[in-house]
């Protein structure tokens, strides 16, 4: 358990709902139930679980329905987006298609945008750096990048991304040339943004699979560069 400055509340990381299955970090169920009674339930946690239990009892929702969604959600991982970026780097025709018809191309690639939101793909170049934020909540292309990281949802990122994007990128290890134009994109609820980072030098002849290993999550939000070959 880690403390986030923006989190004043209580996290009962060890608690397992009765009859539920133990899950590993990626949300995949283990076959052994585990319960820790020494951690306790916070107010909002207990109320969320209470609402779920009540609606299952009333037959409004099925017993396994939420678990099925949890299973589906666990398949949303940043490597989905990385696959698309690596293909765009390798295949100029796909790159054009992804930029010009992003939603169709994402769906053709096997991903269904959450809430049927539209998808916009933005490309970073030496001239332009796009950096995505959602100042109002946490809009994020979860189908392509997995759940948003805590920092993306934090008050500090939501406030600072629009006023000092270069300082924020610098914290993430990216120092931009003054001449590179920064475009901060404040997300709308109906659209989700995926950033194609610049392809690192020294990757000529790399396969899509090799390239995908360089496409880190933060580079697809636009706060970082893609990973340089030979670093990790």
């Amino acid at each position: 358990m880690s403390e986030d400055k923006d989190r004043g509340g209580f996290f009962d990381t060890g608690w397992r709902p009765s009859g539920d299955v133990h899950r590993d970090e990626d949300g995949r169920p283990h076959d052994h139930p585990g319960v820790r009674e020494d951690v306790g339930l916070g107010v909002r946690a207990s109320r969320a679980l209470a609402m779920h239990e009540l609606l299952v009892e009333k037959g409004v929702i099925g017993e396994g329905e939420v678990d099925e969604v949890i299973e589906a959600v666990s398949k949303r991982v940043p490597s989905n987006g990385a696959t698309l970026v690596a293909k765009a780097w390798s295949d100029p025709e796909f790159r054009t298609k992804l930029l010009e018809h992003p939603k169709e191309t994402v769906i053709e690639s096997g991903f269904v945008p959450e809430h049927n939101a539209d998808i916009i793909v933005l490309e970073n170049t030496p001239e332009v750096q796009h950096m995505v934020v959602c100042t109002l909540c946490s809009c994020y292309p979860t189908q392509l990048l997995g759940p948003p990281p805590d920092w993306y949802k934090s008050f500090s990122y939501r406030s600072r991304a629009v006023t000092e994007p270069r300082a924020v990128m610098s914290e993430f290890g990216l120092e931009l040339d003054e001449k590179t134009e920064v475009r901060v994109v404040d997300s709308n609820s109906e659209l989700r943004f995926l950033v194609i980072p610049r392809r690192p030098d020294g990757t000529d002849g790399w396969s899509e699979e090799q390239l995908a290993t360089l496409v880190n999550r933060n580079s697809m939000i636009g706060v970082s560069a893609a990973t340089e070959p030979g670093t990790d």
């Binding site: 629009v162 006023t163 000092e164 994007p165 270069r166 300082a167 003054e178 001449k179 590179t180 134009e181 920064v182 475009r183 901060v184 994109v185 404040d186 709308n188 109906e190 659209l191």
Partner: peptide
């Protein structure tokens, strides 16, 4: 819906970074 571009220097008093920086919002 429209994508609208704003100059960062217009949005923020004393914007401390590059004068050509932009903000996009739909």
């Amino acid at each position: 819906m429209y994508r609208v571009e704003f100059e960062q220097t217009h949005l923020w008093f004393d914007y401390p970074e590059s004068q050509s920086d932009k903000l996009w919002i739909d």
